[in-house]
Design a protein around this nucleic acid. Sequence first.
DNA 1: CTATAATTCATACGTTCGTTTGAACTATAG
DNA 2: CTATAGTTCAAACGAACGTATGAATTATAG
Lengths: 229, 229
Amino acid sequence: MAEVRTVDTRERILDAAENLFMAHGYDGTSMRQITGEAAVNLAAVNYHFGSKESLMQEVFRRRLDWLNEERMRVLDEMEREVAGKALKPSQIVDGFFGTLLRMAGDENRGGMTFLRLLGRTLTEPSEFIRAFLAHEYKVVMDRYKEALFKALPEVPKAEIVWRFHFMLGATSYAIAGTDALRLVTDWQIEDDDSVDRLDRLVPRLMSFLLGGLRAPLPQFSETAAVDSK
Amino acid sequence: MAEVRTVDTRERILDAAENLFMAHGYDGTSMRQITGEAAVNLAAVNYHFGSKESLMQEVFRRRLDWLNEERMRVLDEMEREVAGKALKPSQIVDGFFGTLLRMAGDENRGGMTFLRLLGRTLTEPSEFIRAFLAHEYKVVMDRYKEALFKALPEVPKAEIVWRFHFMLGATSYAIAGTDALRLVTDWQIEDDDSVDRLDRLVPRLMSFLLGGLRAPLPQFSETAAVDSK
DNA sequence: CTATAATTCATACGTTCGTTTGAACTATAG
DNA sequence: CTATAGTTCAAACGAACGTATGAATTATAG
């Protein structure tokens, strides 16, 4: 068995695919680009992963398995410390989104590249990817949702779910990174070094998310909401 | 000149493309799908628009021209009313994001379909689309940024730009709609009728955005921000 | 009605796509 | 060393892609 070569090839393919899917999307990346950048034979992907779709799933599984476990571990520990009492919203938000963002600082776990891929994929259309992600995410998501319900008993559950959704969106954009930010500004954002940038992004995003999560509840007008300001 | 047929064909192609790009993305949609759904000949797209890329641009231009004008009009009017004084942040946010969301209620302006397409495209990788959107958006974006700077003089400009970015992300997810929301919950969200849903979504999102925009400023730790909670 | 311009149509072109194949090569086991 | 299983390789497959072409059709102008 050529164990070493195999692992090498598999890993090189996954790295190349992660990079290219992030940069050009799933449909925009060809097998020939992937195997070219990985410096392996064209047939290697189908040999090791079976198909392009399976490769995409493996790209995500490689990172998400760790992320989901870490999120669970963090939540378990926090809940153990408060011994049945409710957590603070800031703890829960940090456990879910902070853990994600800190992953970006760890190059061994995919770093910024994977986070940007994840951010983009959450809004991407491909049916099979969204179904896969929903399945992978479900258990963890439910735990954090429950924690938020408990932490904010006075807020209607539907409202919390929506705000969780909004937080996902803000985070997704935040990690999609400077590319999308150039839509908003022409400035050269300081701290181009990605690690430094991350150190400031985390508290920035956390402030925003918590501000949104704890905002006053909306007033629904009885008539057309079109006029509501 | 076959004016009537031409307009019909162009419009039918644009409608079909808007739908399909929204559902399957740019790369995931073929010319044959578009012309098939529009019930026109395969060559019609290249005849009327020149290429697939030009078609995509026209899909956006058809809607964005109106949206940008409306956003400008709303901001002009609000600024005229306060006569040189600063606007309230809530007014600015409503002018930019509220105008966008209310567009979703107008089927003649693309409705939810275009908004979902826009939301997805902002994070999409295709270089030429992002460049096009950045160019289309620039003038309006700058005006609203300036209004926010004036409305929040005590907040560092860099912070405002980031929070504008976060707001874009939350909004993008909000309009990307229930599809992505199913990642978060299994519930059948009430008010499936899209107009009713929109009436409640607008105030919901507005509360969240304003809460985030006006959140306390983040504290940057001198050491690694990894430990910051 | 005739001439002319605009549009639609069926068809085909050259590429590129994801995948498959069978031979060549490499490493492990007995 | 030989047999065997794992891996890599060059080459090819049919299908689908965006685009181009020239004839047929339709509408407008004189």
